[in-house]
Design a binder for these strands. Sequence first.
DNA 1: AGGCAAATGGCCTAATAAGGCCGCAAATTA
DNA 2: TAATTTGCGGCCTTATTAGGCCATTTGCCT
Lengths: 79, 79
Amino acid sequence: MTPHEKEILKKKFGATIQRIRKDKRLTLRQVSASCQLDNSKIAKIEDGKFNVALSTIVELARGLGIAPSLLLAELNQEF
Amino acid sequence: MTPHEKEILKKKFGATIQRIRKDKRLTLRQVSASCQLDNSKIAKIEDGKFNVALSTIVELARGLGIAPSLLLAELNQEF
DNA sequence: AGGCAAATGGCCTAATAAGGCCGCAAATTA
DNA sequence: TAATTTGCGGCCTTATTAGGCCATTTGCCT
């Protein structure tokens, strides 16, 4: 995976997180309150700044109230 | 997520990777050849030693020839 | 305009994953 | 038995995430 591909992956994942959060009408603070992730960290993840770890993916899923695998569902086509 | 929960998560994920690889009758070196991940690294991941990053999950999926979300499918019940 | 709440960005430290090489013991196959 | 393959463990350095706090700004509502 090239650095460029990794950038695209991070952006794509972040966009997915944000779309799901907004679909559920949740604020960053509401999500962070449900999963112990700092709200500013979640904002940065949504902006594609981090190549998040497995545990963080699981935490995000918990905060969003959905299954972890759904957070990767959109990656199936391009990666 | 407590340190203990994180340990369980890593072990669970590693076990999933290994099961899928063996179901497909692939060796560590065969998987590594398909995804540019070091074979010893994959062995350690299977042993639950790493809290792998998103990009590594995607790489593993590529090496195993399956969709990334399938690697998290088993986590849905317990996390 | 004023007041809130949300989003965002900066900054920090300790922990740890990435990325990779080498070697060995056990299993497999010839 | 000899040869090969496989799984796996050690070791290393650099890069980056986790985890967290604080300040500013943006947007919304009254």
